[in-house]
Design a protein around this nucleic acid. Sequence first.
DNA 1: CTATGTGAATTTATTCACAGCA
DNA 2: TGCTGTGAATAAATTCACATAG
Lengths: 207, 207
Amino acid sequence: MRYCKIPDEAVRRLPIYLRGLLFLSEQSKKSISSQSLADFLGINSWLIRKDFSYFGDFGTPGVGYNIEKLIKHIKKILKLHVGHKVALVGTGNLGRAVLAYPGFRIYGFDVAAAFDSDPKKNGRKINNVVVENISKLGRLKKGKIDLGIIAVPGDAAQEIADALVKAGIKGILNFSPYRIIVPKKIKVITIDIAMDLARLPYYMRSN
Amino acid sequence: MRYCKIPDEAVRRLPIYLRGLLFLSEQSKKSISSQSLADFLGINSWLIRKDFSYFGDFGTPGVGYNIEKLIKHIKKILKLHVGHKVALVGTGNLGRAVLAYPGFRIYGFDVAAAFDSDPKKNGRKINNVVVENISKLGRLKKGKIDLGIIAVPGDAAQEIADALVKAGIKGILNFSPYRIIVPKKIKVITIDIAMDLARLPYYMRSN
DNA sequence: CTATGTGAATTTATTCACAGCA
DNA sequence: TGCTGTGAATAAATTCACATAG
């Protein structure tokens, strides 16, 4: 079943595998079996094997998977083999948390620009990034920034999205709960914290 | 197909419907057709009808769905008909963003307690919540706090989760990228910002 | 005549079980 | 013998199409 389309749900799991494999690589481990990786990540071993099989033969029967080879390949599939620069829009509480978030690094992301509509924030430096006025968003075309994060409060999300698209961004991570409409070729992933919290009580046992 | 088990994917969509319906309710709208709601939310109308059909007959053919009735019912299913108090652990950048986040209110959540391991932060007041030492986590049993949010950096997530479970929490929203193991009856929903960002490049067109 | 509700068809994803390779 | 890779079986979710109710 080599080289066929990777199911969306498998793509969703690739960053999990990648994180785990990077961790193991730091421990100087050379290879790992699907079963050990399963125990480590909390994902079934047959699901891991199936997912890996979508993009080729990487395992050695009787031994397991070569960690470095797998890392390299998953990075390539996710297009993380090159680093990506990210523009942040909105430097409120959430935006500042994004700027300070250490977790982007392992995937090769660099939050390289920050914008805010509030003129009072312009010029301020947060985590080595100078906050610029939102009107300067157009200059992204010069830098090689291809991803945008929307962390503005309220209902400004759509106009920010429009500006990001005009500035040449290819993908958007949207923290606002508002629907964003963009050209089909632009991918939007929305994270709505409140919405995730909202389905937690459903699963709670009352006793 | 009345009153059968609601599929997980439908449960995931209920908070979206709820948000939209609450918005429409504020506009004093009385009822809405699945098609109008579909246009409004960007979800197919047949999927909306199917989802609603899982928990009963709420629509009137030729008219649409009664908004207030639907809101009340979805809230009940999600167990949001009663308000929930939430304990936050970790008051770093992310934790402070959570404390300031305005989006929890519409679902009836109240972040009522905050904890931090850093003694220097104890007693500090953020958004009207006094930060307590993490050792005081046990007192949750007295307050009616049933949800926890883990916003600690690094690898402390598991011990925080253990403490939250011991304090009687029923559900956890976990912002750390580390795997958390809890008793089966406790539900954990993990939000990993970096992981969501990591699958964005995959969908980017190169041209 | 409009819009719901739902069986049936289809698509997608997960799980199993085992042949075959090192 | 241990572990991969994958067809086949199962389960789950989505999409369709239309009978039916107001």
